[in-house]
Amino acid sequence: MITKNTIQTIASLARMNLPDAELTALTHDLEAILNYIAKLEKLDTSAVTPTSHVLPLQNVFREDRVVPSLTQAEAVQMAITQKDGAFTVPQVIE
């Protein structure tokens, strides 16, 4: 059973400030989805190793050397606001 309070906390963790109507709808939707997902509890997974990735790859390294990349000007080209080639945001420290 998932409460609207839990949903509000999760929304805040996900950096969303949802209006009451959206919180109510999401509580209902997530409850239905989580009830469906609960079928996994039927399986005994105590001795199973988790799979995070299907390929047998580990520690893919490359040489640590400088290669051509975007210039600073190209990197900030899509910036919403910028100053001196850096992204600017509202004041962080009050």
């Binding site: 999760i10 950096r15 400030n17 962080v92």
Partner: peptide, 23 residues
């Protein structure tokens, strides 16, 4: 100010199903 910007941007920028999946 910064958290307000994060939240308002995401509230307005994402559609319903995207919010559902993020949640």
């Amino acid at each position: 100010a910064i958290v307000d910007m994060f939240e308002e941007t995401r509230d307005q920028g994402f559609g319903e199903e995207t919010k559902r999946r993020i949640m």
